[in-house]
């Protein structure tokens, strides 16, 4: 692993609010891996939810303001944990490849954006820049015995021509990372399906149906935990699990963690820096079951 891995860091608004533990654990994991995260000074909204439904130029300008700040930092890569931020930053870059569009966007900005920055997800830099082998070497507490389903959500890899990362129908980056940490990663067929996030306020019945299907599928493949990379996915699957259960008459009890939290555990980061207490469905049971399974496995191995 190169000593010089330092990126401009864009936490996104969820990182300061609903997904504080994602931001915390990301910083802790990068710290443990020797990756520098330089916060973008005076960052602002990425242009998510409202703007892009109304005006592409306005939405791009919101993203481009942040990209321009990264340019001012003298960096060429911005990383963000949130796939929604990532989508907006990358879409803006993609659209600004057209000079006319870029000019219209820059007309709204004090500092024009040259469009020289590539936005990447935390998942992408961990999978590509750090690499699975290097990661595996850093593991101090393997996640052995942990049956986990990796859930990427619908926008981490799509649209492929904008995101340019992993297979957009069957991504494997998170699967690979979790496997490198020693977990028993289950093939999860719905790993890129919608959780219903955009209907989170207006049509909770749809969220309950779509997210419920995800939890059921995860149970079907024998997972005892779901790992996510998206604040909205995590919220829908975790916070709303009670609503899902009452709407569908089910009794799911599925902890849903950010993959960075699991990484932190494996890399030996102190729990208080990972925000495990921030999630609604406690992961304790699943982690304990995994540890017991691993111990039994080791015992069996040494007996044989």
């Amino acid at each position: 692993m190169s000593q010089a891995l330092t990126y401009a860091y864009y936490p996104g608004c969820s990182g300061l609010g609903t997904s504080r533990e994602y931001d915390q654990s990301t910083r802790a994991v990068c710290d443990a891996l020797g990756i520098g995260l330089a916060d973008i000074p005076d960052w602002s909204c990425c242009g998510s939810s409202p703007a892009h439904t109304v005006d592409h130029v306005l939405s791009a300008a919101l993203a481009a303001r942040n990209l321009a700040k990264v340019e001012a930092m003298g960096r060429d890569t911005a990383v963000t944990p949130c796939p929604s931020c990532l989508t907006n930053l990358r879409t803006a870059s993609h659209r600004m490849a057209d000079n006319a569009f870029r000019e219209r966007t820059n007309a709204l900005l004090d500092t024009p954006c040259r469009n020289t920055v590539t936005a990447k997800s935390v998942l992408q830099i961990l999978a590509e820049d750090v690499g699975l082998d290097a990661l595996a070497r850093k593991v101090v507490k393997p996640l052995a015995g942990l049956r986990v389903a990796a859930y990427y959500g619908c926008i981490m890899n799509r649209p492929p021509e904008v995101m340019r990362f992993d297979d957009h129908e069957n991504p494997m980056a998170m699967d690979g990372i979790l496997a490198a940490l020693g977990a028993d990663v289950r093939p999860f067929p719905l790993k890129v399906e919608c959780c219903g996030a955009s209907y989170g306020v207006a049509r909770r019945d749809i969220v309950a149906r779509l997210s419920g299907r995800l939890l059921a599928a995860a149970e079907d493949v024998g997972a005892e935990m779901v790992a996510t990379a998206c604040p909205l996915c995590q919220m829908n699957l975790d916070l709303r699990q009670g609503q899902i259960n009452s709407a569908g008459g089910t009794s799911h009890h599925m902890p849903v963690l950010y993959f960075t939290q699991l990484m932190g555990l494996a890399l030996g980061v102190p729990e208080e820096r990972l925000g495990l207490d921030k999630v609604c469905v406690s992961p304790r049971g699943a982690l304990r079951a995994a540890a017991e399974r691993a111990a039994a496995e080791t015992a069996k191995g040494s007996k044989a």
């Binding site: 297979d167 957009h168 129908e169 069957n170 991504p171 093939p187 067929p189």
Partner: peptide, 9 residues
């Protein structure tokens, strides 16, 4: 090549 059709799995 079609991950969505199981990619041969």
């Amino acid at each position: 090549k079609y991950g969505e059709y199981g990619g041969g799995r």
